[in-house]
Amino acid sequence: MARITNPFSTLLNLQQALDTFRTSGWLDAGPSGSGAYPPINVFRKGDDFALIAEAPGVKKSDLEVQIKGRTVRISGSKAVNYPEGSSVHRRERLEGRFDRVVTLPTEIDPEHARAECRDGVLALMLSRAESDKPKTIKVA
């Protein structure tokens, strides 16, 4: 994506780019997990993939990420607490447990995978496994 001086037009570009892929069946090929939470966006950056999930209110200690082969499993729980004796006016936040498995089209190197959770956004940086990278063959 080209960097444009006006940051707001860049956001619009980003939003349009994300919308284009809303109907993509990219992750459909593999057997998908048992849940749909958290919602996930997948990006490609060179050879690597970035998997970004929005999970506001989920504590780092309540979040577990497992990687094996092509699959990534994100599980955990989210709690919404109200102090005792409070009367609730509006309740829009959901709570519960979640367990989601996604299958990527390439093998992932679990040793080089990084997970980061900041401001309720989980970011997984996944490197393609060396064995899965294409080899260039010199034409003699």
Binding site: L11, V88, R93, D119
Partner: peptide
């Protein structure tokens, strides 16, 4: 330009006052 979203919000009241909890993932 660019779209804005409405954060999912819980509002509850205690004797001391009102508390709002708003989900805004990605906002520092």
């Amino acid at each position: 330009p660019g779209r804005f979203f409405v954060p999912a919000t819980d509002v509850f009241e205690t004797e001391e006052g009102l508390t709002l909890a708003m989900e805004m993932p990605g906002v520092g």
